[in-house]
Design a binder for these strands. Sequence first.
DNA 1: GTGAAAGCGCTAACAG
DNA 2: CTGTTAGCGCTTTCAC
Lengths: 338, 338
Amino acid sequence: MVKKVTIYDLAEDLQVSPATVSRSLNNHPSISPKTKERIKLHAKKSGYRTNKFASNLSKQKSNTIGVIVPRLNSYFMSTVLAGIEKVANDDGYNLIISQSLESETKEKLNAKTLYDSGVDALLISLSYETTDYEHLTTFTDRKIPLLLFDRVFNLPSCPTILIDNMAAGLDATEHLITQGCSNIIHVSGNLKRNTYQERFKGFKQALKKHGLPFSRLQILETDLDPEKVNLALNRIANSKHPIDGIFVANDTYAVHLIKALLKQGYRIPEDIKVVGFNNDPVSEVISPNLTTIEYPGYKMGVLAGQRIIGYLKGTINLQSANSITLNHKLIVRESTAN
Amino acid sequence: MVKKVTIYDLAEDLQVSPATVSRSLNNHPSISPKTKERIKLHAKKSGYRTNKFASNLSKQKSNTIGVIVPRLNSYFMSTVLAGIEKVANDDGYNLIISQSLESETKEKLNAKTLYDSGVDALLISLSYETTDYEHLTTFTDRKIPLLLFDRVFNLPSCPTILIDNMAAGLDATEHLITQGCSNIIHVSGNLKRNTYQERFKGFKQALKKHGLPFSRLQILETDLDPEKVNLALNRIANSKHPIDGIFVANDTYAVHLIKALLKQGYRIPEDIKVVGFNNDPVSEVISPNLTTIEYPGYKMGVLAGQRIIGYLKGTINLQSANSITLNHKLIVRESTAN
DNA sequence: GTGAAAGCGCTAACAG
DNA sequence: CTGTTAGCGCTTTCAC
């Protein structure tokens, strides 16, 4: 058991005041280099560790960034988190991470906890359910910077980072059309969320652009649970005109759907062509390889981290570039070949 | 901007002492239910939020648990984290998560930061590189509970949670043997780490048990980077006797290896049978489906969280059950069929 | 360039 | 059951 050493101990040892010790340790300019060195050295030797609680209490900031994501264990999200963690860590920030599990209630609870924990900033990707945003205004009201990524909502003066989901949806669908599909359906996630809604918009736009009709039966809203692949199968089986193209809003579901389709005797890509979304590792493992949209998760995390930290450090003005759009890319693979 | 309200404000409003307010808010038994209610109500109405810094400083505890993992963005780890987060969140604990990126230096830095941040406990899964453990004794010396999971090291009086990697390695290898393989190689991760070392031991034990010889050429130590699948391919191509079975230490590498083997014209499982490890989602997506070992990541996370929190709350004595072993299970799929 | 001292907001021992 | 009071360890004005 090691007993804690405080700045008072150091001050006593060195016959200076606690203030001088504090200033030295924080590299305050008004301390002579000599005493600064002397104090730092002694601090190191005595195994001094600054007590963050005291420091935080006094400074009213925590050097901690809160993060709320729908779930930790998705390929995409864990990649984003890895990016955030990287920059946060490099800049000496801690990350408190919590998951909403797609529940608005839990998201609000998490937000409250993070607020109470005194995070200096909040990064959040919204749950499926969230329709009310007062848990976020708690932060903005108190001038705690807030940045939304991926699953965003247009909150006044809150920066967002995302990709152009509509353009991506358009690219995906247009690719199917170019490959000869004329009877395309879109399997979507929760349409309340911008990401899925925009992809759907892109889907419709592509159809329109190419003079294809759109009917209600061409959009299937799901929670993208790959266990429920039957929903899509049924829709396909019951279609009047045989479906020849599917645009799925994420790779995991797409991959499970492909497996189910193959099992039912459909040939892919000959009978039905499939495009996914995200460029998850599974997309390269499934046979046939899945055509998909590359979604730069790690980069998104890095950027989100950099912007919020830049703001905290005063080097970036968040308002100036309110919304950042990352590039996406269509990756053509076997599942849409001719 | 909302100005902060403190217990002093509440005390003044209600004409009681700050102590009474504090006690009421913390449900201290020695306060009459009446005043307790009165105070709580008023606190809520005035939008009071407890200042954790002050509370932590005074109580010398943070209600925060630190977690260090090699990387956030692996299926297995993110699943474990999801489990930890679940129980932590349910019990009102915050999680500070950081990744070592397999670097000992970074792991130590992270440990230091978490220590300085005053975490009440530390959960850690070691990096590939780590061979020195003084960053961990920092915690144990100061009686901060420490629990290692998955990638562990036998530190005196530190509980661990893992699976029986040796038995799992034995099961995997024995399955190959049962299926008729007699020329088996093992593609391993870094043999410094318990997980891989134990799986390798199980591999050797299975060979021995079934009277098969073992030579140095049957073990390939890698960093399991799926980009480097050539290492395994070369070993297979250069083998005097044709390899007919491969036990790979994780699914991701196994899957990439299978793809490469198929491309080279090997038939799987006819020519070569393959067993992976982890039961990642990819194992079910690859064709042929990969036989693998189920590794209960979420459960491991939940258990790790429960134990450490149980200990912090005084309901569990960590020393008593120093090491917990979770069950694994061989999942037989197409890649080892006859 | 350095020191004295007043907080930061909450907790807990002690007293009543 | 409630109040007084002394910290917790660091930061930061204001003096000197």
